[in-house]
Amino acid sequence: MNPTATPSIATQVAPPPAYLTISIVNSHIGAISTFHQLQTKPNGVVAPSPWGGVPVPGTVACGSSASMAVPTNWAGIVLVSDASHKITDNDSGIEANFVSWGPDFENGNAIGTVDVTFVGGFSVPIVCSCAGKVQTGCNKDLFKLGTCPSAVTEGACANPLRGDLGVTQANPFFAPCQHAAYAYEEDHAAVSAGECQEGHINCCVGTACPPNPDQPA
């Protein structure tokens, strides 16, 4: 998610728990690899680490899951790839933050915000849910629906529109998931903000995951 974008948030949100738990469930056809990065704020301050420290790059077996708990003011991204390939910045990503908007907004409560991003590129399908409802992401395997516009490197298709803030339409390869997942820089319809205040975001990897009602038919 573009860090300068302000997502639309419901007028009323519930007070969150002390920690937000993010779980990744592997429903992919094989093992997946994950890589966690903390985000740096515009003032140069690095977001706080998850409880227990920043998770090391890891592998999640098919049918298994991995979780982390993050404190208020955490912001980060988890890149996900098929475990047969190295993680690159062209992989599918789960972006989330648990940031307090201050006393003038929602009484200072931290807001659980999440999106699935293919702005860097696409490697595996991902959808994220809260309270059993899909909030963001796309369960389509784009490799089976179109031709990557660039060379596929380490199992990931690089998005040619990365860094272009002027476009309003996805590249054809990424279009089957636009507005459900970030298919280009300004695709802000993909963000879920204030819908995950019960404290748990559940992200599912693979085409077997439930579809996002907002993904193109």
Rank of each mutant, 00 (worst) to 15 (best):
A75I: 05
N109C: 12
A75M: 00
F105D: 10
G76R: 06
S81Q: 14
V78Y: 02
E95H: 06
D91V: 11
S92I: 10
N90W: 10
L79T: 08
N107H: 11
S92Q: 06
G93I: 05
G102C: 06
D89L: 15
A96N: 01
H85R: 13
W101N: 01
A83G: 09
A110T: 02
L79K: 10
G76I: 02
N97I: 00
K86V: 12
F105A: 08
S92G: 06
V80W: 07
P103M: 01
T88E: 11
T88A: 07
D82L: 07
D91E: 13
I87P: 08
F98K: 01
G93Y: 09
S92K: 11
S92T: 15
N97C: 02
I94A: 02
G102E: 00
V80Y: 02
G76Q: 03
A75K: 00
A83Y: 06
D104K: 02
S84F: 11
I94Y: 05
V80D: 04
A96Y: 15
G76E: 05
S92V: 08
D104W: 07
S84G: 14
F98P: 06
A96K: 01
I77C: 07
D82I: 04
E95S: 02
F98L: 00
S81H: 11
E95L: 12
E95A: 06
S100N: 00
I94M: 04
V99A: 01
I77F: 08
P103L: 07
A83C: 10
F98S: 03
D82F: 13
N90L: 01
G102W: 00
K86Q: 15
D104E: 06
